[in-house]
Design a protein around this nucleic acid. Sequence first.
DNA 1: GCCCAGGAGCATA
DNA 2: TATGCTCATGGG
Length: 241
Amino acid sequence: MMNSYNVYQRLLIAYGVQGWWPLLQRNSRPGYTQEGYHPGVYSLELTPNERFEIITGAILTQNTNWANVRRSLTTLLENCHLGPEFFCAAEHIDLAALIRSSGYYNQKAKKLKTTAGFFLARGAANETPPSRKELLAIWGIGPETADSILLYAFNQPVCVVDAYSMRIFNRLENRGSSEGGEWTYMGLQAKFKAELPVDVEVYNEFHALLVEHGKRYCTSKNQKCFKCPLKSECRFLAQNS
DNA sequence: GCCCAGGAGCATA
DNA sequence: TATGCTCATGGG
């Protein structure tokens, strides 16, 4: 069984640096791609507006394709509406219309207003990261969104786990009921923390690489295992081919 | 037409 | 604690 760091190294060689979290406010600037990614650039001094863009994106991308989220973020930026003041002041129906392309727009409008209220109330305290417990107490922020905000918006050394991570590691070990059950969020997060160097850049890339791997090869159905860069170590492939 | 996407909250048991 | 349901657009 490969440990997390071996998986990280293998995926980094296969896919290269991903440069999350994309910052649309900086797209097309030197070091940034048109999509706002910044591969290899990590010493970012985020402005409050950029931090809030990441927080907004983390909520909008819940169970949603990033391309749909990018449309919403672009619309918000073009209208100078991407900020906690606007989210709090806006009517629900207006905010929902602006984020329509992200799906779940009624739920997400409520989540954004609630979250904006939290960060607006903190004011200058937004220079320092909130606690995970504080984030989880906000309606609409669960484990993955909280950890994404801590890692990508506040550069805290927190590992992010998502549906792709669990699928990939369940398959690598082929964990099912006979293997002690599938990975849980907290269980896999503890494994990552134990096996990876404590490094914000590694955590940043690792989560992004797992998402890329899930999209390219480790898909829910019709896996493309024959070209998978992890296939030599994967017990799922060994037992399903 | 179907399935999926960088989840979370809530009801039910 | 553990499933199951709901939320919803847009691309393959």
